[in-house]
Design a protein around this nucleic acid. Structure first.
Lengths: 110, 110
DNA sequence: TTGTTATATGAACATCTATTCATATATCGA
DNA sequence: TCGATATATGAATAGATGTTCATATAACAA
């Protein structure tokens, strides 16, 4: 019996990722690959904001912000609470927010 | 004088990222947002591989691998050494590889 | 109910992206 | 030089993505 590898795959002789993991990983990074979504998440470091507040702060159309928030919401990277007709969005994934912060820090010393 | 904020921006009243940082951050995550590039980098966790070895291991066309390696090379996420006509590629950014590893770990418990 | 405000949604569009094929370039050995 | 092998590159293409406009939905107050 061969010594067990750190890797947990089997038949494929390889170290390749299973399809679902691959999809989730790529989606996670895709969320962070768009400047608009980065700006929104970066804003949410501070505190929760409504859709209109985000649009105003970042000088974006309301529909642009709403579409991007939906994207982030689907990935559970943000959540919201309702107050009347207003929805306050906040971040909802510590792991991703940590990565973002690290990378911003890393890149801002260009 | 107001208490100083953690944030280092100034005139824009805001917390917005400067354009160059924004671009670098988005590019970094874009590199990790494509399944093919993820698989290539994941393979390079193990050891260096030639272009053809990567293509064979991952069942990809040689030109696909070459194009993606160029992309990763431009971002200095991989490097290579030559041995005759063969180029051996290896990873070249610890920060990015750590993020990738963390996220694969994070997502493989789906 | 009606009007107002906040947000979501769908379609259209332009742009970007990844892959493929065909071919060019480069290194080496004979 | 010639042939063989390894890799890079350019053009073409199909598909994905982000933004916008117009409009729908939802909550609330009067």
């Amino acid at each position: 019996m061969e010594k067990e590898l750190a890797n947990h795959n089997d038949e494929n002789s390889a170290q390749d990722l299973d399809e679902e993991t691959l999809f989730l990983v790529s989606q996670t990074f895709k969320a962070l690959s768009d400047p608009t979504r980065i700006r929104i998440l970066n804003l949410l470091f501070i505190k929760e904001f409504s859709v209109n507040e985000i649009a105003k702060q970042l000088d974006l159309r309301q529909s642009t912000v709403s579409h991007q928030l939906r994207f982030l919401k689907n990935l559970r990277l943000v959540k919201y609470r309702r107050e009347g007709t207003t929805l306050y969005y906040s971040h909802d994934d510590e792991h991703v927010m940590n990565m973002l912060q690290q990378t911003i820090e890393h890149c801002s010393h260009h």
